[in-house]
Amino acid sequence: MREILTLNNVTFTYAPEDSSIKNAIEDVSFSVQEGEWIAIVGHNGSGKSTIARLINGLIFPQNGTVEVIGEPLNEDNLWNSRSQIGMVFQNPDNQFVGATVQDDVAFALENNGVLHEEMVKRVREALKQVNMDGFLNHEPSHLSGGQKQRVAIAGALALQPRMLILDEATSMLDPQGRQEVLSIVRELREKAGLTVLSITHDLEEAMMADRLLFMNGGKKFAEGTPSEIFAMGDQLVELGLDLPFALKLGKLLQKNGVNLSGEPMTEEELVNDLWISNFKN
């Protein structure tokens, strides 16, 4: 698989002239392969948002390199690199600029000089991909939180990016809106092979990833599958990261004498394990 994104020994501080200020991230390296879903998790101040800004070229590292599709990111290729990456941010209301849904999705295309006929086609296709094609002429302010984020995703998809970055994109949504957005992203990933990088506090979102990067104090503390990372258990809790509900409940049940064959990470896995271990026969 081809590498879409690579960080090589990246260090960044917001006050390089002040040696007393701690680095926001320090000597961080990781790569994202085409078609992967990677989640970056960690407590507030761990460096997650700084990584998002570095990837999008809003800031540049003091040391190390950020590479997009094999090219080191710099001021000369910044706009071309940004065209390869779609960003969806935390607050959908801060992203809307159009009077209608279709106007908003078309905004970035207009800025990139896409011809009108092609623009109309892309807008409709992108909204269809997120199940919002029936809302073309609706005002964004009248949509639910989940619908707004789906429109924001459509705006990113219309640019036909190689990778979609979700920067705390579900953190302000209610459970239904969060589920809507995550289901759409999972479907896009499965059907279109979209590469996804999610920066998140949401454990349900993190559990969908192929691989987790756990950031702590600006450094990459651990990297592995969701099962491998959450198997660290109390060590993660001590560092400010919660554990999945199903895993915590499973441990509590085992402590109280309930048979389980493993350590289920999702509610579905927990229910299946309970059934097989205690009721099937």
Rank of each mutant, 00 (worst) to 15 (best):
A108N: 10
L143S: 02
E75D: 07
K148E: 11
P92Y: 04
E180M: 13
L115V: 15
D93E: 10
I153M: 11
V97P: 00
V120K: 12
Q179V: 04
L127G: 07
E117I: 10
V88E: 09
K121R: 13
A108F: 02
V151P: 05
E110G: 11
I85S: 06
E139P: 01
N111L: 04
L159P: 07
N74A: 05
A152L: 09
F96P: 10
D103Q: 03
A156S: 06
N94G: 11
R150C: 13
S171H: 14
R178Y: 01
E110I: 06
Q102L: 10
M87S: 00
D133H: 09
Q95P: 11
R150H: 12
F107Q: 00
L164W: 08
Q84C: 06
D76I: 04
R150W: 14
N77H: 08
R82E: 00
M87I: 03
N80H: 15
A152I: 09
N74W: 01
P161I: 03
M87P: 10
S81K: 03
N131V: 02
A169C: 15
A158F: 10
P140L: 02
S141L: 08
M163S: 07
V120E: 13
H116F: 15
S81E: 07
T170V: 02
S83V: 01
N74P: 11
G146R: 04
V97M: 02
G146W: 12
F107M: 07
R150A: 00
E125W: 15
A106G: 12
E117G: 11
G177V: 08
S171M: 11
Q176P: 00
F135G: 03
N80I: 14
D93P: 09
I153D: 00
L73D: 02
R178S: 07
V88T: 13
N74K: 00
A126L: 14
V114S: 05
V88S: 14
D174Q: 09
P161F: 06
R178I: 05
A169T: 14
D93L: 05
V123Q: 06
S171Q: 11
A152K: 03
V105N: 09
V130W: 13
G86D: 02
P72S: 00
E180H: 07
N91D: 14
D133I: 05
K121D: 12
K128M: 06
E71C: 04
H116R: 15
R82M: 09
L173G: 01
D76P: 08
T100G: 03
L157V: 11
E71P: 09
F107R: 01
L164V: 12
G145H: 06
G177P: 13
E75I: 09
V123T: 12
V120A: 14
K128S: 10
N94S: 05
F96N: 06
A169D: 13
D174H: 13
D133E: 03
R150E: 08
E110V: 15
R122H: 11
G155H: 03
S171N: 10
Q176A: 05
L143P: 03
S144E: 00
G134Q: 07
N137D: 15
F96S: 01
L173T: 05
D174P: 13
Q95I: 06
D174Y: 14
E117T: 12
A156L: 06
K121V: 01
S81C: 13
D104G: 11
M163G: 06
M87D: 11
P140T: 02
D133K: 04
T100H: 03
G113A: 08
Q147W: 02
V151A: 05
L164K: 08
